[in-house]
Computed example of a mutant assay.
Amino acid sequence: MSAIDEAMTSGSVVRTGRWLCLGGATLGGIGLLGWVSGTMALTTLGQGQPLMMPNTALALLLIGSAGAARHRDDVGATQRTLSVLAALVVLGIGIGTLAEYWFGVDLRIDHLLVRNQTIGIARPSPLTALALSCLATALLLFDVRATARVRPSEWFVLCAALMAFVGITGFMLGVAPLYRLTRVPIIGLSLPAAISLLLTSTGLLLERPTAGIMRLVTSPSPGSIQLRRLVLPAVGVPVLLGLVVTRFSAAER
Rank of each mutant, 00 (worst) to 15 (best):
G170M: 04
G120I: 08
Y179V: 06
L205E: 09
Q117F: 05
G92Y: 14
S196W: 04
A7D: 15
G76M: 05
L135M: 09
L181V: 04
D73W: 09
E252L: 15
L113N: 05
G28V: 15
S37R: 04
R229H: 06
S133P: 03
G236E: 13
P177N: 11
G28W: 06
A251G: 02
N55P: 00
P185I: 14
A41K: 02
F248L: 14
A146I: 10
L45P: 01
I93D: 11
G46E: 02
S37A: 11
P185W: 14
A7I: 05
F142C: 04
A148M: 01
I109C: 06
P220F: 00
V89T: 10
A87W: 15
W19S: 10
D5R: 03
I187C: 00
R253I: 10
G174C: 09
V184H: 01
I63M: 15
C21M: 01
L162S: 12
I109R: 02
L204H: 07
W35E: 03
C159P: 00
Q47K: 04
L191A: 06
L60Y: 01
G34R: 02
T16W: 08
I195K: 00
I213H: 00
F156Q: 03
G120T: 11
N55F: 02
T16H: 03
L139E: 12
L107D: 10
T97V: 12
N116Q: 11
L141I: 01
L227D: 03
S65N: 04
G11P: 02
V231P: 06
G64Q: 07
A69M: 10
R145Q: 04
M52I: 13
E6S: 14
G170Q: 05
G34E: 04
E100W: 08
S37W: 06
V150P: 00
L240G: 07
G104F: 09
S201N: 07
L91Q: 12
R15E: 11
L206Q: 10
P192Q: 07
A146N: 05
L32R: 01
T56Q: 06
V231H: 09
R145K: 14
A59H: 13
R15A: 15
F103D: 13
P124W: 07
R123F: 09
G203D: 05
P238R: 14
F248W: 06
G46I: 02
L227V: 08
F156L: 06
T137Q: 09
V105L: 07
G29M: 11
L22E: 04
M1Q: 06
S133A: 11
T118C: 03
A176Q: 13
Q226E: 13
Q117I: 14
V114K: 00
L243G: 10
G212L: 02
P192K: 01
V14M: 09
A7V: 04
T39S: 15
L62T: 12
Q49I: 03
E207N: 09
G188S: 07
A69R: 14
T26V: 14
P238V: 12
L181W: 15
G236Q: 08
L127R: 10
L60D: 15
L141F: 11
W155C: 04
G34T: 15
G94M: 10
I121E: 13
F103G: 01
W19G: 03
I225W: 04
S10D: 11
V114P: 02
I93S: 12
A146C: 01
